[in-house]
Structure formats: C-alpha cells, structure tokens
Amino acid sequence: MVEQPANVDAAVNTPVVVDSNDDGTVAQELELEHMRSTLEETIVETRSTPLENRPRLPRIALSKRNRAVVRALNPMLVTYLEASRDLCETDSILFGAALAVCRIIGAKVSTAGRATGHSSAIPAWRRRIEERIAKARALIGRLICFRSGNNRPRIVRTIRMAFAGTNVSLSQPDITQKLTERIDDLKQRIAAWGKRIRQYTERSTRFNQNCLSSRVIRRGSMNHWSDQW
C-alpha cells in the first residue's frame, strides 16, 4: 500500500481497460479508438436529427479528466471540420462532439424540454395556426361536397354554420357562386397562414446561424489573443 503510485486516483477515474501484460500503451490506444468511434456515432446521429429534436446537454465540470477528454477529441475534429460544406454542417459536427464528450465521461443527457413530446417541440402560436389550417381544409372539403350535390344532413349542417351571420341562403339561385367564393377565400387564408409559418421558420434559422457564427468568431478571436499572450 505504501508503494502504490500517487496517480492512482486519475487511473481509477479514467475509463480505460488496462492489460497487466503491457505498459499502458495498448490501453491508451483502445481508449482513443473508443473515443473516435463514439465521436463518429454522435456526429452521424446529429446530422440525421432535426435541430428541435436534439437533446439538452448538461454543464460539465472542468475537471482534469474532462479536460483530457476534450483535448483528445480536438485533433479528431479536424477531418470533419475540413470537410464541412456550410455553417449548418459545422454546427452539427460541434454539437456531435459535445454529445460525444458527455457520453464518454458518463454525463447524464436529458431530453426533457425538447421534441420528445409534440407539444413541447412546436410553439403554441404555430400549433394554433396549424389547427386553423386543418379546420379550413376540412371545411373546404365539405363545401366541395355540397357543391357537387352531396346533401347529407351533416354536410348541410356544416355549410349552414359556415355561412352563419351572413345573408347567404342555401336555396338561393347563386349558391354555387357563393360556395366557390367561400372556397377561394379559405384557400387564400391557408396560403397566408402557411407563408407566416415559413417566414418565421426562415427568420429563426437565420437567427440561430448568426448566433452560431458570432460564437465561432468570438471563440476564434479569444484563441488568437491567448496564443499571442
């Protein structure tokens, strides 16, 4: 016990498999291969996962072991970053690397608050618009059925509700024209709602990309000044 090495704590806390027949070189190579395999798996997984479905990454402690894992993964990222075609792919690579670090050190990755549930993944305003679009499409289908001569009680009741509060009567001579106008109006509303969703999605994507670009530039500037210092 007295002759036990002083770095035994670091050896216990490092997730490597040591063979008693070698001097630790084989164990280090196995650990690096495990890290490389984990990194490749997380990057592939992140590339095929939508942004809103990514898990929440925890804040990890800046311990010696965690810093060693990050330093070991940094050289492995060079190949992926050099092959990156755009900023979105670079973001996926960096997120995959962060996820690999969490898995290697055994940090708990929680998916709470992400897209594990449909209600948490989509904003409330977008769900309301999508519900309006669904109801409008259903009403268009009923209007088309009635215009085609379908006079079932359920269809007629829906058409009367659609024209409630107006001077339109289902027995008037120009009811076909009124139905067509109502269908065109609903189609225009659906197009406007869909355009609103697309505009917000594009604006949100640009905002996220600008934030990521700012962080990358800021990190590069800090590294530049630290190297000079």
Rank of each mutant, 00 (worst) to 15 (best):
D9P: 01
R147M: 08
I122E: 02
W229P: 01
A10W: 05
T79N: 15
V26R: 15
A191P: 12
I104T: 00
S48H: 06
S20W: 09
I43D: 02
F95H: 02
A115Q: 00
L143K: 03
A100V: 01
A72Q: 08
R47E: 10
S48C: 05
M35I: 08
A138M: 14
V101W: 01
A10I: 06
D184C: 13
Y80R: 00
E41H: 09
P55E: 03
R56D: 05
L139C: 09
N66D: 03
F146T: 03
T158E: 11
C88I: 13
E202D: 11
T38P: 01
L57C: 03
G220T: 14
N151Q: 13
R132Q: 14
A136T: 12
S120Q: 08
V168W: 05
R182A: 04
A11Y: 13
T25C: 11
A100C: 00
R71W: 07
A68G: 01
N208S: 09
I183F: 07
K178A: 10
L77H: 02
R189Q: 12
R103W: 02
A124G: 03
L30C: 11
L99W: 05
A100W: 00
L39K: 04
V26T: 14
T116Y: 05
G24C: 13
R54D: 00
T79C: 13
I133E: 08
R215S: 08
V16M: 15
I133N: 11
L81I: 06
L87H: 04
W125G: 04
L62A: 12
C211A: 11
T90V: 10
I190L: 11
E45P: 07
T205V: 03
